[in-house]
Structures are given as structure tokens and as C-alpha cells.
Write a protein that binds this DNA or RNA. Structure first.
Lengths: 200, 200
DNA sequence: AAATTCACATACGCTGCGTATGTTACATAC
DNA sequence: GTATGTAACATACGCAGCGTATGTGAATTT
């Protein structure tokens, strides 16, 4: 580590980071299609050439944005669930963190609405397997191993629950501020009702 | 009805229909983004001008394609469920028809993969409320009224189940041809497991 | 201090959408 | 049956935006 960075390297990394920030804001605010690299570059007082120097394509830049957002979500889940050793507790905490995160307009818009368009379904699915879907599947396997859930085919069930959570997250994000607590309570009740049948 | 059509009107409608067919094939085969109106027009031995005469935009043409596919799905559900008067039976049949329909590569690809991307989330959601989500909510209300389900907040539950079905639909649409029957079976099992907890 | 590298900027070509403007077959009016 | 209108297209154009090819000057190396 600490490879003494030359002045140029520092500048380069700074503009790359600024580029990522600007792209995140643009993509979240206007979506992938209606965001031009020209505008992103302009936000940084740079040119499109700078963008293409750091990222091979518009899609690649977008993917970098998604990866960072997902990584932060994973981080939050990790730091919140580490104290709770119990598998069921951890799952519930992870659920809460996830729903909370989906309420963030940047994360919700970029990852759940724009990402499939920008990356194509295949690539998007790969990312979801890596992050969201993968987490759900792991939790399920943990719960089954701990004997808390009935044995079941994990793959499709995790996918179903995953999409179910997406629906809840979207509904939360779209609900108005004052009634959000009520909506959250309703959805938690509904989710618990649905998941009840899985408990052994 | 039977407003005697002039020769010109017949031709016009014929080309419009042909346009819709060609667009359906192209969108299903190559997706929205990678389908150019030039190609669609060429399939019909017409020009892009013809497309823009009948449809105001590429998105509008795509939406027409989606509407027709959705309408056919609704029709199939309607004709299959009419004999079965029982609410629960009807719901199960509707579920089967829906999942089966999602296995159709054209319907699956266009409606569940391309539509959200092409139309944007807002417009796509409107369509789903009109077709998918609305149907689910109606079925739920019928089931609760018939005393087959526990009382529950219909709105969030219907939304969750709808998204759950979206997940199944996407998974089916994306699965490879040979393994599709297995995937279908797995998802049916998983869905039944999840819905079990709702039965009174 | 000469050479080289690298982080960008500039310039260009291309695709593809939307629009503006013909053009021709057909319908209607007289 | 001829003139006039109109609807269904075709043709031509402008323009945005991506990707690429080619500078350019400052930082680093030799």
C-alpha cells in the first residue's frame, strides 16, 4: 500500500472520483438514456475525452456507479448484522437495512430502475446475483441449515423473495413522507405473512 | 360496425397491422434499443416515413406491441377462468395461464424484459396497474370476500405478489428453452409455498 | 534539457430518431 | 370525366450523442 502517488496520479484519481460522483448524480436525476456524457463531463469542467480516458464506455461508467452503490449497501448490511449472531435476527436486520436503503432515491432509481436498461437484462442479473440476490440466497441457506426454515429449492425461492422485496422497496420510496411509517408497517406485516409459511 | 372501408383504408390498416407484426418480431428478437425503425420498415418493404405516419414515435409503436400482447394474455385468462366459477380455482388457473404465457419468448421478452426499459418505469408501471397488478388485486379481493384467505391489507399484499410474479415471469422469460419446464415447476412450487400462509 | 508518458482536449464519423417537405394513388365534388 | 382535395406514404434533412482517432501540453523520467 501507500505507493507514493505522483502529483499526476493524484490528479487523475481525483478527476476519476469526481467523474463517478457527477455521473451518479446525473444518472439518478435524469436516468441513463437522458444523461449525456457531455453533461457529466461539463459538471466536472472537463470534456468527454476525459470520460473515455477513464472508462471505456458510457455503460462501463454506469456500471461503476452501480457497483459503488451496491458495495455501500453491502457494507451497511455487514456492519449492522455483525453484532447479531443469530441467523434469524441477522436476516430481519438485513431486511430492514435493505428496505431502508431502497428508500434512498439515488440507490433506488439507479440500481432498480435504470440499471436493467443501461446494462441489459443479462448483465444486470449478474450484478444482482452478485449483490442482492446472492445475499438473500445466502440468508436462506443459513436459515435452512440452522433448521429455522423448511427445506426448499433455494434458488427460485430466493429470487421470488428478492423481487418481492423490490416491490416493497419501490412502494416505500414512492410513498409520501407522512404516511411512510404506516406503509412500512403494512408491508412488513404482509411480508411476514408471506414468509410465515416458510418457517419450520 | 362494418363501416364499408374504402380501398385506401383497407390498405392503410393492412400496412399498420403488418408494421405491428414486424415490430413485434424485431423487438422480441433484438430488443428495443437494438431495433431500428429502418429495419422494421424494411421488413414490410416500406420506409420509416410509413412508421411515423401510423405511430408518433418509436416508443408509441413499442407500446402498441405491448398492449396487444397484454390484451391476448388477458383474453386467455378470461376464457380459461370462465368455466371455473370457484374463486380459488379461478385464481390458480389464472396463475397457471400467466406463468405459461411468460414462457412464450415473445411475450416474455417484450413485456417483462424490454418493456420496463423501453417505456420507462413510470409508463411501464401504469401498464402493469392496468393489466397485471389490477388483476391480482381483484383476485385477492374476491378470495377474501369468499372467505378463502385471511383478512389482510389487500393493497400491499397484491403489490408484493405482483412483484413476486414479475420475478417469476422474468426468470421464465430468461431461462433457456430446454430447462424451462424444470424452472416452471420449481417456481410453481415456490409460489404455492409462499401463498400457503395466506389461506384461511 | 531532451525524451517520453500520460491525462486529458479536439475533431471527426456514424447511427438513428424525429420532422419537414414532397409525391402519388385514390376519393370526392362538380 | 375532369378538377380538386386528401390521405398514405417516400425522400431529405437536421440534430443529438456515442465512440474513435488524433492532437497537446504538463508532469515525469533519463
Amino acid at each position: 500500500m501507500s505507493t507514493t502517488q505522483s502529483r499526476r496520479e493524484q490528479y487523475s484519481q481525483a478527476t476519476k472520483a469526481a467523474l463517478l460522483d457527477a455521473a451518479t448524480r446525473r444518472f439518478a436525476a435524469h436516468g441513463f438514456a437522458k444523461t449525456s456524457l457531455e453533461d457529466v463531463a461539463a459538471d466536472i469542467h472537463a470534456s468527454r475525452g476525459a470520460v473515455y480516458h477513464h472508462y471505456p464506455s458510457k455503460a462501463a461508467l454506469f456500471e461503476a456507479v452501480v457497483e459503488r452503490l451496491e458495495a455501500e449497501t453491502m457494507g451497511r448490511i455487514a456492519e449492522q448484522t455483525s453484532p447479531a449472531a443469530d441467523a434469524w435476527e441477522a436476516s430481519m436486520v438485513a431486511l430492514d437495512v435493505f428496505l431502508d436503503r431502497c428508500c434512498d432515491p439515488v440507490y433506488g432509481r439507479v440500481v432498480w430502475i435504470e440499471a436493467p436498461l443501461a446494462l441489459g437484462w443479462r448483465r444486470w442479473n449478474d450484478l444482482q446475483v452478485k449483490y442482492g440476490h446472492g445475499v438473500v440466497a445466502n440468508l436462506f441457506e443459513g436459515l435452512i441449515a440452522a433448521g429455522r426454515l423448511k427445506p426448499m429449492p433455494v434458488e427460485p425461492m430466493a429470487n421470488l423473495v428478492f423481487h418481492l422485496l423490490c416491490g416493497a422497496g419501490q412502494a416505500l420510496a414512492e410513498s409520501s413522507e407522512p404516511e411512510r411509517p404506516r406503509v412500512l408497517a403494512e408491508y412488513k406485516q404482509a411480508i411476514n405473512l408471506l414468509l410465515d409459511s416458510l418457517v419450520d
